[in-house]
């Protein structure tokens, strides 16, 4: 597969603070790359460098084979960018915002109107054409921001937390659109906080404390030996009084971690522990008939495990 986005030792320092530390990354054409990490971990800084609006302190990045610093003009033609705040001109109507975005990329006359009509059809913005952008609700603002970012038919689209603060229906519809774009060969680079969104991506990367800890396909990552250490397995336990059950399970030797997931809990246990032992322990706190079955790790499990390992390695290194 052809790499659409490539980062090689990409680094950004602000004074003494390193916001992005030697990031190496490759994103294939047509993939949906989910970029995850806590607030302040450097996600937006990476996007800004890739979009050519922030100069890297070190390292290089290429989009479609073009260097984002030296060939920024060519890169700008290729990319679309939808920022966190859905940056729109509130004084302009929906229609005017779309026309403006097209004009910025030198679209005019007939092609401009045609492209606008296509995007209106795609995003169902039709009824709001003459409404000021400032009067739209969150979900519609997001659609308009995306339509604006797509006016010039970019081959790579960057979305910085596109679903922050919008309702679940709009969120679902946005993802449907993203899959459609990806199917047509567009490369998508999406940052998000939502694990369920991460699960939908064809590739994910996780950044923590300015360093990319892991990247790859979700299934690959879940099979990483670091995520599920040798001689352990993951169990899902569904029972009454989950919180009381959680307390009890944490007292059992051989239970490495226990987390509540709604009506059930997820355990990481040594192979030596049998479902029978768990049932017995739960009975001592008055919980009867739990349902226990094996599960694979979720992406959250992957990130939790790898972050913990990274933190341990680093504090260990510092102590030594």
């Amino acid at each position: 597969m052809e790499a659409m986005i490539e980062c090689d030792g990409l680094t950004k320092r602000f004074g003494n603070f390193t916001a992005v530390d030697h990031l190496n990354l490759s994103v294939e054409r047509g993939s949906i790359f989910g970029f995850l990490g806590p607030n302040g971990s450097g996600k937006s800084t990476v996007i800004r460098m890739l979009c050519g609006i922030l100069a890297p302190s070190e390292g290089t990045a290429r989009i479609g084979g073009r260097d984002v610093v030296r060939e920024s003009e060519a890169v700008k033609e290729m990319i679309g960018y939808m920022s966190q705040q859905f940056s729109l001109y509130d004084e302009l109507t929906v229609n005017e915002n779309l026309l403006f975005s097209g004009k910025l990329y030198s679209l005019r006359d007939k092609p401009l109107k045609q492209r606008r009509d296509q995007l209106i059809a795609l995003t169902h913005l039709g009824p709001y054409l003459n409404r000021r952008a400032g009067l739209l609700s969150g979900g519609w603002r997001q659609r308009l921001a995306m339509a604006c970012a797509l006016m010039h038919q970019p081959t790579v689209l960057f979305l910085d937390e596109p679903t922050a603060g919008i309702d679940p229906v709009a969120r679902r519809e946005l993802w449907d659109l993203l899959f459609e774009f990806s199917g047509r060969g567009m490369t998508l680079f999406v940052t998000t906080h939502y694990m369920d969104e991460a699960e939908r991506c064809s590739h994910v990367g996780y950044i923590h404390m300015s360093k990319l800890i892991v990247s790859g396909q979700p299934d690959e990552l879940k099979r990483l030996p670091e995520v599920t250490p040798p001689n352990t397995r993951r169990l899902d336990v569904t029972c009454d009084h989950v919180t009381r059950a959680l307390q009890a399970m944490r007292e059992v030797a051989g239970v490495r971690s226990a987390t509540v997931f709604g009506q059930s809990m997820h355990l990481l246990v040594d192979d030596s522990i049998t479902p029978r032992e768990i049932e017995a322990k739960l009975r001592t706190v008055g919980i009867q008939a739990p349902e226990i079955h094996d599960i694979g790790p979720s992406l959250e499990d992957v990130f939790v495990a790898l972050t913990a390992r990274y933190t341990n390695n680093h504090t260990g290194a510092r102590a030594a």
Partner: peptide, 11 residues
């Protein structure tokens, strides 16, 4: 408002 960033991404 963040619109400047949007402009800078364009050519």
């Amino acid at each position: 408002r963040g619109t400047l960033e949007q402009l800078l991404v364009s050519p």
